[in-house]
Computed example of a mutant assay.
Amino acid sequence: MDDLKFGSRNKRGDWAPAARLELPPFWRKPFSLPKVLAWIPEYLWPWNAFHMATALAWWVFVVPDVEVMRTLGWGWALWLYAVNAAAIFVFYGAVELFWYVKKKQGTRFKYNGKFPAEQPSDVFWFKSQNIDNFLRSFFVSIPLWTLVQVLFLHAFAAGYVPWLSWSDNWLWLGVLTLISPAIHEVHFFLIHRLIHVPILYKWVHSVHHNSVNPSPWSSLSMHPVEAFLYHAVAFWHLVIPSNPIVALFQLHVAGFGAVNGHIGFDKLELTEDRALDSHAYAHYLHHKYFEVNYGGDGLIPLDKWFGYWHDGSKEGEARMNARFQKKKARMNAKSGA
């Protein structure tokens, strides 16, 4: 595919889409019902459908019997960790293998024209972003993902929280499933903005931001505090009347869905004329500029409401720079005082 039909490339080889990021159509004015209806299939397919499919697969083939989960134990916890780790290795690893190792589409649609393997740095373990990100994912984030999973499954199984049945509560649970990605966006925005507070950024979030040029293995490369807070989104289903399958879906939106913002490519070419939209650009801009787009794609447009939204346009960059100048002026005023 010719990526220059969809965007432009600068002298450094970095590619950017021509179309600016847009909020979902129900937030745009004037309201257009046809646009909202056209957006629904995109919302469901393929990413959210994939996360639901994996949640159902876990429930049927991986999650232990309720009697087992009523008691906390290393056996079933380690089993869940092994499956989670294997799944991420296969899923993230496939993207890494084809698009970063074999480079099947070169740098077409790639935001940053360089690959992490070409940029060794002392900020990473063994001076390698790939090794550092891989080790942090499998020995920090995925264990904490599993801890969250074990805790909420145990809470449901032991009767500490209501376990709503699908037969009696199918409408509510259906709605809750559909809005789970929105719950993720709100939770992610809140914890993400929190760990950008200077002291927390220095000691916690800077680990993730070392990957200025993110790749699939960067997705779950986090400090333990961030990793726990990020996956703790599933705990909302211990507060909201829910069902463990919906909580699993919520967890998978976070765990498997983290790769979307870190793929590094706007489109993944599947054939010569078909490509899969990654929805990576909003979060790539966050990695590039640090203080924009703390949430996701604007499903709940908190970034827009709080003035952090960057849509990739020159106007968006001007708004960002104006905000940076105001922040700099405030800091200078405080230091002068």
Rank of each mutant, 00 (worst) to 15 (best):
F126D: 09
K104D: 02
I142W: 04
W76Y: 07
T54S: 11
Q119Y: 11
L147M: 12
P120C: 08
V68M: 00
G73V: 00
S167Q: 15
L97Y: 02
Y160H: 15
T54M: 12
L78R: 13
G106I: 11
W170G: 10
S141H: 12
V60M: 14
L153K: 05
A94Y: 06
N130C: 13
T146D: 00
R136Y: 11
D132E: 01
A77V: 08
W125Q: 01
Q105T: 01
V161S: 02
D122L: 11
T54L: 11
W58N: 00
Y100P: 06
G159V: 09
W170K: 08
V123P: 07
D122E: 15
F124H: 00
V95P: 06
G73L: 07
I88P: 01
S141E: 10
E67K: 12
A55I: 01
K114V: 09
E118C: 11
A55P: 03
E118Y: 09
P64Q: 02
A117E: 15
L147D: 01
T146M: 03
L78C: 10
I142L: 10
V63Y: 05
A55S: 04
S137V: 07
L72D: 06
S121K: 09
V83Q: 00
P120G: 05
Q105F: 10
P120R: 10
V83L: 06
P162N: 10
K127N: 15
V68A: 13
Y100V: 04
A57W: 15
G93H: 00
A85N: 08
M69S: 03
S137F: 03
F115P: 09
S167I: 08
A82C: 10
T107P: 10
T54W: 13
Y92F: 15
F139H: 14
V68P: 00
Q105E: 09
M69K: 01
N133G: 05
P143M: 03
L135P: 10
S121Y: 01
Y111F: 15
Q149A: 11
L72Q: 03
N112C: 14
K102H: 15
F126E: 11
A55Q: 03
N169Q: 12
A85Y: 04
A158C: 11
D65H: 13
A155S: 11
L56D: 05
W145Q: 14
Y100M: 03
P116D: 07
W170T: 06
S165P: 07
G73Y: 02
A77Q: 07
G73F: 04
V123Y: 03
Q119S: 12
H154V: 00
F98T: 00
L97G: 06
F134D: 00
P143W: 02
K102F: 14
R108N: 15
P64I: 03
A77G: 06
G159T: 10
W74A: 13
R108Y: 14
F109A: 04
S141P: 01
K102S: 11
A85W: 05
E67S: 13
G159P: 05
D122V: 12
G106R: 05
V83M: 04
F98D: 01
